[in-house]
């Protein structure tokens, strides 16, 4: 009896939880298909008896949102590629090789992930202005500040899990350490590297502050910043705003659905370095 009760309660909690997570998306998606006039009427709170239209999306695609998505895609991809490469080398060295200042380096990497991002933005902004690098894809470079530490910690976890015997036998056979890394370790660590790449991509895709300050020109804005400008000073076109929200959410949804296992492993291995 008690068991039935608790399992019913259990089910109710799960359903409620899912409902709370999904409801905002659901409601925003529904709104995005409504005519602007109706969103401001009493009808806005009803599901039935409403009119539906694709006008918001048609209007949205006349704005620069697609261009912003393209910027986000390019910047995030560049960041993912180079951060994953340098993080792999660094993490392997920390996990397996001997060198002085290893502990110091680990502490510095950890500390940089804990500082508020505001701490680097002033000097980076001034240097970018001086070099003429604002409003360009150079913004991918400072993105390393937010993505590199997480990538390194995820990869340290994964490299540590590879059995040591693999390298030892290769080195016994006369292979150099760097050769061993590229020929033996890298293929074995591929799943971990992929996890780290996914996490880096999500981190870069969601970045806001650097993009807001460095790429101020509308043509160079990333999606996260572009969408924040839709919330205008004096009036808000909710139809377009909700449509934009849906469009910008779709890439993230695809990534989550395709790579959920890697993401869960990334969240836990980045945080628990055991």
């Amino acid at each position: 009896m008690n068991n039935v009760k608790s399992s019913t309660l259990f089910k109710i909690i799960i359903v409620l939880y899912l409902f709370i997570i999904i409801f905002p998306f659901f409601w925003v998606t529904v709104t995005s298909f409504r005519p602007e006039a109706e969103i401001w009427s009493a009808n806005a709170l009803k599901l039935r008896g409403a009119t539906y239209t694709s006008a918001n999306y048609v209007n949205l695609f006349k704005t620069t949102i697609l261009n912003s998505l393209k910027n986000s895609l390019i910047i995030s991809t560049i960041t993912t590629v180079y951060v994953t490469m340098i993080a792999s080398l660094c993490a392997y060295s920390i996990a397996r090789l001997e060198f002085k200042f290893k502990k110091l380096l680990t502490v510095i990497i950890l500390a940089t992930s804990m500082f508020p991002q505001m701490i680097v933005i002033g000097p980076i902004y001034r240097v970018f202005v001086k070099l003429g690098w604002t409003n360009s894809y150079y913004i991918s470079l400072p993105y390393s500040m937010i993505t590199l530490p997480i990538a390194v910690f995820i990869l340290i976890t994964h490299f540590s899990q590879i059995p040591k015997e693999m390298e030892e036998s290769a080195i016994m056979d006369g292979s150099s350490k760097i050769n061993t890394f590229f020929k033996i370790i890298l293929p074995l660590a591929a799943p971990g590297i992929f996890t780290s790449a996914i996490m880096t991509f999500i981190g870069a895709w969601n970045e806001f502050l650097l993009s807001l300050t460095l790429n101020t020109n509308e043509a160079w804005r990333t999606a996260t910043v572009s969408i924040s400008f839709l919330r205008g000073q004096f009036e808000i076109f909710w139809g377009q705003v909700t449509a934009a929200t849906v469009v910008v959410t779709i890439p993230t949804l695809i990534i989550v659905i395709l790579f959920q296992r890697q993401i869960v492993s990334g969240i836990t291995s980045g945080a628990l370095k055991e």
């Binding site: 905002p24 998306f25 409601w27 925003v28 709104t31 999500i202 895709w205 969601n206 806001f208 999606a223 996260t224 910043v225 969408i227 924040s228 839709l230 919330r231 909710w238 705003v241 909700t242 934009a244 929200t245 910008v248 959410t249 993230t252 990534i255 989550v256 993401i263």
Partner: peptide, 14 residues
Amino acid sequence: AIPTSVAALMWCYL
């Protein structure tokens, strides 16, 4: 996973 600015805009509407 969704960008914070997107989530904020969503809640702004709600």
